[in-house]
């Protein structure tokens, strides 16, 4: 009898415990999901009501429903285009097979499909361009920042150049970059498109500075004691950089990289619009020039996609930092 009572008590405890857990869980859900969701819903309602009051020469300003319709049609167009592409290649293969059957020595031609780039193709192009430009910049900026942080002399000699070029909008560089790329990149069988290189270098030019500056600050603010440890151990410069400098500067390096990537992404869209280089920027400009009743809705889809992708890129960098950084306890925002 007493055993049963004990068991019962035990059960009761368990259920109370789980009740607490459920409450805790619900509270977490409320914090993590409900509040952001509420924010989004209020925003959508406001958007819809404001949009219905704005009429432009291209029709009503797109509200959430219009944007939703347009995004569906963009997906549909993309699928349609893929079907066309597949059909094209099938036809080509069939034709070539027939030719070969008639005459085994016949020269066959394979052409790549040159259909209209869909919204999703443009997204991929932009992502590819921004990552190329960003990596090229990081490749230069991180070592340069480390050199500036380690040596006062290097810093003093490079700092004026950084300070002068940092405030220049990369778009001001765009015409120069375009001309330089077309003058210098003259291969018969180019691996990269010129337009791609132009956009990518423009991104590189704006991705350099935040990384250089933040890396420099990170390297100069290394704990004095750790530098003294390195001196007592007489660590060679490469070992010093690898074991002391880079691990201490990692948080600041990543701050720089994230700032760089964010500005790089913003600048890329503008550069694509301005230079008519393939990518999301061109998509927006084309839709604007097109001026159909769907255009504004489609542009709005692109705007949201740009925001979402920018956000995802930043999360990606955070995840990378979390992986690389030694300090797993650090709260990263």
């Amino acid at each position: 009898m007493t055993e049963v009572k004990a068991l019962f008590r035990n059960e009761q405890w368990k259920s109370i415990f789980s009740m607490n857990q459920i409450q805790l869980f619900l509270r977490q859900v409320l914090k993590a999901v409900t509040l952001p969701l509420a924010g989004i819903i209020i925003f959508l309602i406001l958007w819809q009501s404001v949009a219905s009051n704005i009429t432009t020469s291209l029709g009503q300003f797109p509200g959430p429903t219009e944007v939703w319709e347009q995004s569906k049609s963009l997906v549909a167009e993309h699928k349609q285009e893929r079907v066309k592409e597949k059909a094209f290649y099938e036809r080509q293969e069939e034709r070539n097979a027939k030719k070969l059957a008639k005459n085994p020595d016949a020269k066959i031609k394979t052409r790549t499909y040159t259909g209209k780039a869909t919204f999703f193709d443009q997204i991929l192009t932009s992502l590819y361009t921004v990552s190329f430009g960003f990596f090229a910049a990081s490749f230069i900026a991180v070592p340069l920042g480390i050199a500036c942080g380690l040596s006062e002399k290097v810093y003093q000699s490079i700092n004026p150049i950084i300070q002068i070029f940092k405030p220049v909008s990369p778009l001001a560089w765009l015409p120069l970059v375009t001309m330089v790329v077309s003058a210098l990149y003259t291969s018969d069988d180019p691996y990269f498109d010129k337009s791609f290189l132009t956009s990518a270098f423009t991104v590189t030019l704006c991705c350099l500075w935040p990384t250089v500056i933040n890396t420099t600050v990170g390297v100069t603010s290394i704990d004095r004691d750790l530098i003294n440890v390195s001196r007592v151990l007489q660590l060679s410069p490469p070992v010093h950089v690898r074991t002391i400098v880079i691990p201490s500067a990692i948080p600041m390096i990543f701050t720089g990289l994230r700032l760089s990537l964010a500005t790089g992404w913003m600048v890329l869209i503008a550069a694509e619009m301005l230079a008519q280089n393939p990518g999301l920027g061109k998509f927006i400009w084309d839709e604007f020039q097109n001026g159909s009743s769907n255009s504004l809705g489609r542009i709005m889809v692109a705007v949201l996609a740009i925001g979402l992708i920018g956000y995802l890129l930043d999360r990606l960098m955070l995840a990378l930092q979390r992986r690389i950084s030694w300090d797993k306890q650090a709260i990263l925002r």
């Binding site: 003294n228 440890v229 151990l233 074991t243």
Partner: peptide
């Protein structure tokens, strides 16, 4: 000039925070 023949114990331990206890000693 500084060298390992005159080892310094610093007031704030000056361990490299990204290396384990073992690795910190191993470095030296």
């Amino acid at each position: 000039e500084p060298g390992p023949d005159r080892a310094v114990v610093f007031q704030n331990h000056a361990l490299l925070p990204w290396l384990t206890v073992y690795q910190n000693v191993e470095l030296a």
